[in-house]
Every structure is written in structure tokens, then in C-alpha cells.
Design a protein around this nucleic acid. Structure first.
Lengths: 341, 341
DNA sequence: ATGAAAGCGCTAACAC
DNA sequence: GTGTTAGCGCTTTCAT
């Protein structure tokens, strides 16, 4: 690989001039600059990132802290990663995929001590996550996909649950439904204070209230079987429910089976919405489900961009909320009068 | 961050001794070594990877070349990445997620010119992929997940299509089926010479022949609608088919709808297998489909390990084939006598 | 506007 | 077994 000195020799100038010309660090005569650029092109010169980083203390590498795949892990998480990698790449940065082990704080301490990364991108941020605090204290730049309970003035990109719930409720209310039920993520996930589970539950209740339609929640099925069961309980307790929003896609499988088992049909007898699941998953169902698709790639992109802005010292920390996209499928329709339980 | 010199001062030795003690590069007296280790621990010393890499020409960073998400992109690709990242991490390496743009070769030239990575991990390798050749010529270490038509003596980990097909055929033949049909990936994917599409088609035909059961292929539905259609055509032309293996999960959705539309049931009237789709996707179906689940994370792991072995100069290039795992669901059963078309 | 030279933190000869 | 020293390729003063 040719180096700065080779370019300097070929262009008949000093290395520092080449460095300046290529980085725009200081004024260089137009003619000189052209000579240098040509020499660099001819030699196929590529700056050595290690040497540059060693000197400048900036590697232009970002780390994406990747949690150990939990169940229910899927496209969404992957899209965070690819979105972030793309945005980083466009801005001249690289993305390191850093799997998180049992002790995330120790992992962070290790990773940031290496001098390898300029900043850290956190995903799967819990409401009481301790990582942000650690990073702040350590003086490491970071941004989050998701957010803690009280994120304060920190860079983050998260789903706009309020808008998402509003859109979902408006959709079913607009179809004429008067009573909506909500199935959250599994009990375990909810108990673990997983942000989306908590926030979606709050916002759906609020949106239903604001729209003036009846609302039931308190169901947290995490599997097909639990979904089936929850649906039976729901119908028994609230036979007048005509629309249902489900967070967990396995639970949705159970709901659909239960609906079919009682001879009901979707969407005639029940409007079914999948919340926070990708359209690709929704297409696996028959009929194709109406979905509130999370803007995963966009969040990944935003997270990376924010972090890079922070490193460049540009603006103050940003907080960005992006709503899910309502993708209307074949599972929503006006309620049918006189459905028999 | 404390550096080598700080440790040296605190332990009252020369920097080179510290380096040697910490890296085991040359013999160090036990007592000295202990002093050094203690000093390092007290200072929370972390080696600067950039400095080390600049000097040693080895960064212990691997790049995973990540193709632009095509449709049908999902869990599998993500598991390559996480598997590779985990394996790398366990062996003291880091994994850079490098999104590929329109010109993969140029991308590679750029990436490898930076001096940032020791080697490259290729995924989504096409039968006529030009990247391996480029990397070989450039003298860059690499390994592949998947393989070209004639990979030769190159490190790769791929699905064992022969074993997978054999297992699938054995499963349906064992249930008593006498005629199996095969739906490949979409026509486009097949035309693009996507390895799995080509190899699976060949091996299923071969396995059926070897097992002595009748076999039909030549269907390549890439969507639910195409799946429905293909199934209708299949039944019209081959009413005696009782088992079907499908590669594309959207096509499977169409097949299931078509089966239901004619009043048939799975598995009573048709045994349905999903090939190369994750068990998580198979669970989205009702009934839960029998699946041949690709060993994605394992392939990612193997790919990373092979590459690291290569970098360490240990063994000769390895070729590893891993069969899919047969996960038996509720969609396979013995054929029913006297099914009416 | 350009050049010379001093490191960034580490490894690896080479001496002793 | 341990110390001294010369770089790795780059950025960045400081001269000129």
C-alpha cells in the first residue's frame, strides 16, 4: 500500500503539504493541490486509518452494542444495525458490531478503553438502563435507539408511541369500531420494563380515551397458545369488542386460530392489528394483517447520525420520535352488526 | 487512559518488558511479571488497539461485507452477523459491519486499503461471485458464508444441501409419501444464480431419485399469489402429489390458502415442508410447519473462526458444510388414502 | 504557501 | 531476563 511519503515524493512536496491538501487542513496552492491529487490518484493512495487515528484520537469508528438475541428477536433489530451502518458509511464512519455479554458495563469499559471507537450506539435500551449513566460518567459519546424512563438531554431516537397509538385508534374508530382491545408483549417482557411494552400500553389507553372509544387491555400473551387463551378470555369478558391490537406476533397466530375455531372470520367479525411488527411478518398471515410497522431502519439511521453530530460537536443533543407506519392489510374492516358470540 | 509507559514506571521496568509480559512475546521472570500485571490492573491499563495495529500490521478487526437488504432478507442474514460477531469476540477479534453498495469490488478495494481490517468475511456469495477472486488477487485474507460454483481451496462454510435434501426426503418417505413436489425460490432469484436456489434444486432431485420416490419441481413462486397459482398447477398436473417442500415463505402462505380453498387440510391432505426458513417463521403458520432450518448462526460462527485460523496461519483452508436442522411441526403426516382432487 | 520535525502508543529488533 | 531504540503512517506545531 502506498503511503503519504510516496505521494509526497511523486508530487515533489513535503508530507505535511500532502496531508494538508488531502484533508483541507490548511490552504494549499491550487496548482500544488492538483499535482498532489493526481499523484495520490495514480498511486491509489488510501490513508491508513490506524495511523490517522493514533495521531488524531479520532478513528471514525462507531460501536453498535448488540444485545444477546432474545426470543422475539428479528428483523427489527437487524434493521437498526443495517440502518445505522448505512448512515455511518454515508458520513464516512464505520460501524463495529459489538455483541453484549452478561455484563454490559464491563463490556463497555473494555470496548471504550481500547481507543478503537469514537462513540457508542446503544440499542434495546431499558427504562432503567444503567449504560447511559456509565457512558456519561466515562465521558464517552453515545446515542440511543430507544430511551430510558427520563432520558433528559441525551441523543436518542425512539418510536413515537403516542402518535402510533393515535393512528391505530383513529384507524379502527374511523372504521366505526366502538371498542378496542390491546394485547401487550409477554408478561416477562412487560415485567422487565421493556420500554415499548410500557409506553405502548400507556399510549393506547390514552389514545382510546381521547378518541372516546371503549378500551380493554391487561392481556400479555407471549405465545400462540397464550394468544388463543387471551382471546377466549377477552371474548368471554367483553363480547362487544370488535377490534384488537396485538403486539406479539406469535400471540397473533393464536388469536387467528381462536377466531377461526369459533367460526368467526377476519376482518368481518374481528378487526386485527399487528403493532410493532414488520410488514414482512404481517404478510405471512392470511389474510394479510394491518400493521403498525416500526421505523427500524430509520431509527438506526437517526441514531448513527446523531452520534456523529455529537462527535463533530455540532448541535445540542437531539431527541427524535418517529411514529410507526400504518400499513393497511386485509384484516381491518367496519364492524359487522349482530355478530353472535 | 493510562499507557504502557505508565505501567512500566509503576512496575519499575522498561516498556518492552511490560509489552512482553502482557503479550507473552518473550520470557519474563515470574516476579517481574506479577509486578507488571498488578501495576496494569491498578491503573486499569488497556492496550491501545490503534497503536498496536499500526506497529504490528494486525488489527484484529474483521469486516463482514453486508449486502444491501434484498427482499426476503431476514433473520437468516442477521444470524450470520451475530454468529460471526460472537465467534470473533470470543477469539479476541472485532467485527465491522460493512454495508455493500452498488460496486462491491470498489467497496472492497476501499475497505481493504484502509489498513483497518485483517480480513474479510463474505456473505450472500453468488455462484459466479467476483469478490473471492479479487480478494485472492489482492492478497487479502477472507472466508465465505456460501460458496461459488467451484470454490476450490478457499475457506467457506455453507449449507450441506445434499444432507438437507436427504433428510427432507427421508422424512416424507418415512411417513409413506410416494411423490414429492418442490417449490424453489422465485424465478428472479433462481435466474440470478443464487447458490441455495440452484443447489437445493439439484440435491432434492437427487435425493428423491436415490430414495426411489417420485418427484416434481420446476416451480419457482416468489410470492403468496404465485404460491397459490403454482399449487393449483401442481395439483392439476400431478394429482398424486401428497408432499410439498417450499423454499419461499411467502409462497408457502399462498399454498396454505390454496389448500384451504379446496377444502383440504394440512397435514391430512398435504404434507408441507418449509425449506431454509427459520423455525421462528415456521411458527407463524397454523399449523406450525415442519421446517428445515438453516444453521445460520453456526455458519456465521464458522466463517469467522475459519478466517481467524487463516490469519493465524494455522491450518490449510477449510470447507465446512452444515445441514439444516429438521424441526418437525404439525404440517407433516402420513398421506391419506383416497384424497379427492 | 510550504517544509522539517516531533510525536501518538505500541512492537520488535538488537544489545547487554 | 531486561533495557534501549527505531520505527509503524499519520497529523500538527513551528519555522521559513
Amino acid at each position: 500500500m502506498s503511503k503519504l511519503r510516496d505521494v509526497a515524493e511523486r508530487a515533489q512536496v513535503a508530507v505535511s503539504t500532502v496531508s494538508a491538501a488531502l484533508n483541507g487542513t490548511r490552504p494549499v496552492a491550487a496548482a500544488t493541490k492538483r499535482r498532489i491529487e493526481q499523484a495520490a490518484a495514480e498511486l491509489g493512495y488510501r490513508p491508513n486509518l490506524l495511523a490517522r487515528g493514533l495521531q488524531s484520537k479520532r478513528t471514525r469508528i462507531l460501536a453498535l452494542l448488540f444485545p444477546a438475541p432474545r426470543s422475539g428477536f428479528g428483523l427489527t433489530e437487524m434493521q437498526f444495525a443495517t440502518g445505522a451502518a448505512e448512515a455511518a458509511s454515508e458520513l464516512g464512519y464505520h460501524l463495529l458490531l459489538s455483541p453484549e455479554n452478561a455484563d454490559p458495563i464491563e463490556e463497555l469499559r473494555h470496548l471504550t478503553g481500547l481507543g478503537l471507537v469514537d462513540g457508542v450506539l446503544l440499542m434495546e435500551v431499558g427504562l432503567d438502563d444503567e449504560r447511559p449513566e456509565f457512558l456519561s460518567a466515562a465521558g464517552v459519546a453515545f446515542s440511543m435507539i430507544g430511551r430510558t424512563r427520563e432520558p433528559g438531554s441525551i441523543d436518542y431516537a425512539d418510536i413515537d408511541f403516542a402518535a402510533t397509538a393515535r393512528d391505530a385508534v383513529a384507524h379502527v374508530a374511523g372504521l366505526g369500531h366502538r371498542k378496542l382491545a390491546f394485547f401487550n408483549l409477554s408478561t416477562d417482557t412487560y415485567a422487565a420494563q421493556y420500554g415499548p411494552a410500557i409506553r405502548a400500553e400507556i399510549e393506547f389507553a390514552g389514545a382510546a380515551r381521547a378518541a372516546g372509544i371503549d378500551y380493554v387491555d391487561d392481556f400479555r400473551p407471549g405465545s400462540a397458545e397464550e394468544g388463543r387463551q387471551a382471546f377466549e378470555e377477552l371474548v368471554a369478558a367483553h363480547p362487544d369488542v370488535t377490534a384488537l391490537a396485538v403486539m406479539d406476533d406469535h400471540a397473533a397466530v393464536g388469536v387467528i386460530a381462536a377466531v377461526a375455531a369459533r367460526g368467526w372470520r377476519i376482518p368481518e367479525d374481528l378487526t386485527l392489528l399487528l403493532v410493532l411488527s414488520s410488514a414482512r411478518v404481517a404478510e405471512m398471515f392470511h389474510p394479510r394483517l394491518t400493521t403498525l410497522e416500526p421505523p427500524s431502519a430509520e431509527l438506526g439511521r437517526l441514531g448513527a447520525r446523531m452520534l456523529i453530530d455529537r462527535l463533530r460537536g455540532d448541535a445540542p443533543p437531539q431527541q427524535r420520535l418517529v411514529p410507526c407506519r400504518l400499513v393497511i392489510g386485509d384484516s381491518s374492516a367496519p364492524p359487522r352488526e349482530g355478530r353472535t358470540v
